[in-house]
């Protein structure tokens, strides 16, 4: 077979893959956003699972759904839902506890009882909600060293995962 025919096959296969890949990614809720950089502060898996265990962080890192699922599977994680109690009761990420951002004063005892080195993940509904980000920053200021912020929030979680009611 001539080199030209082999090259045609290779190019056709790659072209088909590009077409199918872009179409499938566009329709997939777990699709990848084509971007030059990770979203600001987005953690790599290394930060979470390799160096993270020994690293003290001064500010919360941003994690995505897959990383949250990995943290959940690894255990030893506290998930904080920062929405209102009514919203929390209506549906939440499994194993989450509720610390409404507006009712932080009443949750000081709960926060004090947490291990400073445990992984703590905060979330709310997702953009434009920023309560989880603010609580994450406050927890970091209070000396918690492994704080993560699931910025896509419950709106993103419930696309593919079960919620607890």
């Amino acid at each position: 077979m001539s080199i030209k025919k082999v090259a045609t096959q290779v190019i056709s296969i790659i072209a088909a893959a590009v077409l199918l890949g872009l179409t499938a990614n566009f329709m997939n809720p777990n699709g990848v956003k084509i971007t030059i950089n990770r979203s600001a502060g987005q953690a790599s898996d290394d930060a979470l699972f390799q160096h993270g265990a020994d690293r003290e962080m001064n500010e919360p890192i941003v994690i995505n759904k897959e990383q949250l699922k990995k943290l959940l599977a690894a255990g030893d994680i506290i998930i904080i839902d920062t929405r209102s109690p009514q919203e929390f009761l209506h549906g939440r990420i499994p194993h989450a506890i509720n610390i409404p951002f507006e009712m932080l004063d009443q949750a000081i005892a709960t926060i004090d009882s947490m291990e400073k080195t445990s992984w703590i993940v905060t979330y709310c509904d997702g953009p434009p909600c920023d309560k989880a980000q603010h609580l994450g920053a406050m927890l970091s200021d209070m000396g918690f060293t492994r704080v993560a912020f699931y910025d896509a929030g419950l709106d993103d979680w419930k696309i593919t995962e079960d919620i607890e009611e």
């Binding site: 790659i14 893959a17 499938a24 990614n25 956003k33 790599s44 897959e66």
Partner: peptide, 30 residues
């Protein structure tokens, strides 16, 4: 799950993130 695959590629730390996302979308179909 292309986003999980993108994370897996990114962990190698050998390609810029733009290339990582493109590979994560196209490579599985190839």
């Amino acid at each position: 799950n292309p986003s999980a695959f993108a994370d897996a590629i990114d962990n190698y730390r050998i390609a810029p993130y733009l290339l990582v996302t493109i590979m994560a979308i196209i490579l599985p179909w190839v």
